[in-house]
Write a protein that binds this DNA or RNA. Structure first.
Length: 575
RNA sequence: GCGCCCAUAGCUCAACUGGAUAGAGCAACAGCCUUCUAAGCUGUAGGUCGCAGGUUCGAGUCCUGCUGGGCGCGCCA
């Protein structure tokens, strides 16, 4: 994250007093402006040049636009009290700094920097000139990244709880792409192994039952719900009673047909959520391409594999794990661990600089094993970022809604989308930090009104669009060259400040892989716009003011649209 | 028993990764539409940041130990 690097790279840069030369929005711009001065002053005081100056935006109003704690961090080295150091620093800084209104010492020794309002006009100009790219970043340019998410087995429909994985994964992919990364969206398709066989058996049982064998036993751990029967009916429609005899072929047909059916159903659901993967990686190709065999051979050659009780074990205890685990059952089938290691080995071999895995908390135990496995194979696992989101609780009218799979009445993601809409689904699942348990309030989600946070954002966007339509009707155009010096109202300044933060918010979200920060930011942006809207009339104001405010509103519209785009939520022009 | 996650206003959650007086939204109360969308805005009230220590100029944030909740700990995935 280039905050300090960037600052140092420009340490020798000399300010000529015109902010237009900086050409970069927001905090970075203010920081780049002031940092060289602070460093020069520190140098004059004899402070080690390697020291990094940290700036931050004070959360308290009245503490200036930018503040630094440098005096406090230097207190120890200089053996002085922070306020005295701050005073010295201030003297070395001098009073001849253009664009700066004042610098104050506050609290234990903060330096609070207040810029003159023309800085804001320059920032808004920059943002306006960015056009459709407002909030975009290039920090990830030239870097490849693979984001794996959803990855639900094709043994049924996505259930409502899958929604969090879908929304978190896709939003993280969007954020990274927004910041310039070359992103591959991947779905690991678990179409080998036991679960698929069980699906085949479940469908076959329904097939036989549909053909009149009412006594035919449904497998004990079979998949309930309507769909195995529906798939069975499709097989009957196509091939009639051709599989009345229970053969390998019959089960294979059921399994294959079921897989295809589930795959289609899952894709339809994802499509509604505006989620489109680039790669569907089939687990069975790991076997057919010999990658599973290669993986186990490599592990074996490193002495990490042994046989016991007729099974093949991975010596995880030699890799710092708590216990060894079976990777090939005595039946000859692999456990999920082996193909998982082979899959990650494959992703690493494909050369991605960063690999992001999105998992639910229920898979937490598998991760250390897989990472230990690929690390033993000689890969750098620091390239793998594992995002573990906590579970979701659905709540309605203050009561937890319980869904039981056994009852067959499961709550599918399709059901959820139908009830509250795709936009709300996407937003609700990313609006909380991934590490916290998410309470999904169905009542609030269904509410198409003021309480619903999604509408709050969309409403701000629609409101701006409405003004722009009216302006257009009146022949008033948005002019990127409008004189912005007329913007002095606190809410105008506040809005510009918030807008200029957007790029940094996106970069931080990309660095921390925390999508909720984008949702938080947009709520803040919407609120700031509503404040501005309420107090600063646009149409009908003095011509210069009208023009400047119209531009400000238009920049806000684009920022909001971009932000909603990153969240995968629609930005309606009318509501 | 072991591992990981969580605990902040009545409820759901933030807190710029160690900073200043911990912030929003719901819910409660009181206001604002003859003017660009009231799906909005303004104000009031609401806190021992689970508990106890520790680290330092400074801790909701870091370390340790508790307590309470979640998810795991399979020759299922």
């Amino acid at each position: 994250m280039g905050r300090c690097e960037g600052l140092h790279a420009h340490a020798g840069w000399c300010c000529k007093g015109s902010v237009h030369q900086i050409g970069e929005g927001g905090r970075m711009m203010m920081e780049r402006y002031i940092a060289p001065h602070v460093e020069r002053a520190l140098k004059a005081m004899g402070v080690d040049e390697a020291i990094k100056v940290h700036f931050e935006i004070p959360r308290q109003e009245g503490h200036g636009h930018l503040s630094t704690n440098i005096a406090m961090t230097l207190a120890k080295a200089l053996k002085g009290n922070p306020r005295q150091i701050a005073t010295d620093l201030l003297q070395h800084l001098g009073t001849e700094l253009p664009l700066i209104e004042k610098i104050e010492i506050a609290g234990p020794g903060f330096l609070n920097i207040t810029f003159s309002t023309e800085v804001y006009h320059a920032m808004l100009r920059d943002l306006a000139l960015q056009g459709a790219d407002i909030g975009r970043s290039t920090v990830g340019a030239g870097r490849t990244c693979n984001v794996e998410y959803v990855s639900a087995n094709p043994t049924g429909l996505l259930h409502a709880g899958h929604g969090r994985n879908c929304a978190v994964g896709d939003t993280i992919a969007n954020i990274l792409q927004w910041c310039g990364y070359d992103v591959t969206r991947e779905y690991y398709f678990n179409n080998a192994g036991n679960q698929m066989n069980m699906l085949g058996k479940s469908i076959y049982a329904r097939y036989r039952q549909e053909l009149g064998d009412v006594e035919y036993e449904f497998p004990e751990n079979g998949y309930h719900g309507d769909y195995p029967r529906i798939i069975a009916q499709q097989i009957i429609a196509k091939d009639g009673d051709a599989y009345r005899e229970e053969t390998e072929e019959a089960l294979t047909v059921c399994r294959k047909t079921g897989e295809a059916w589930c795959f289609e159903a899952i894709q339809r659901t994802l499509d509604v959520l505006n989620i489109h993967h680039d790669v569907f990686f089939n687990e069975d190709t790991l076997y057919s391409d010999g990658k599973v065999a290669q993986t186990i051979d490599e592990l074996r050659s490193k002495g990490l594999v042994y046989e016991k009780d007729g099974a093949t074990w991975l010596a995880l205890t030699q890799m710092g794990q708590q216990q060894d685990k079976v990777i090939v059952k005595s039946t000859g089938e692999a456990t999920y661990r082996l193909p998982d290691i082979a899959y990650h080995r494959d992703k690493l071999q494909r050369g991605f600089e960063m690999i992001v895995d999105i998992f639910g908390a229920d898979h937490i135990a598998t991760i250390p094993d897989v990472l230990a496995g690929v690390e033993a194979l000689g890969f750098d696992t620091s390239r793998v970022k594992v995002i573990i989101h906590q579970m979701v609780t659905f709540v309605e009218n203050g009561e937890v809604v319980k869904f039981s799979k056994r009852s067959g009445k499961s709550f599918t993601l399709d059901d959820l989308i139908e009830e509250v809409g795709a936009d709300v689904v996407r937003f609700f699942f990313v609006m909380r930090a991934v590490g916290t348990h998410l309470e999904f309030d169905l009542g609030l989600a269904k509410e198409e009104g003021e309480k619903n946070p999604v509408f709050y954002l969309q409403y701000a966007h629609a409101r701006i669009c409405s003004i722009l339509r009216k302006a257009e009707e009146q022949g008033i155009a948005v002019e990127p060259t409008s004189d912005l010096s007329v913007l002095v109202h606190p809410h105008e300044i506040e809005l510009i400040t918030t807008l200029s933060r957007m790029q940094l918010v996106m970069e931080r979200a990309a660095a921390s892989l925390e999508p909720h920060t984008v949702a938080e930011y947009l709520r803040d942006l919407a609120a700031t716009y509503h404040h501005f809207y309420h107090d600063c009339r646009i149409l009908g104001a003095e011509p210069e003011l009208q023009s400047a405010r119209l531009l400000l509103a238009d920049v806000t519209r684009r920022a909001m649209r971009n932000g909603l785009f990153v969240l995968g939520v629609q930005a309606p022009e009318r509501m």
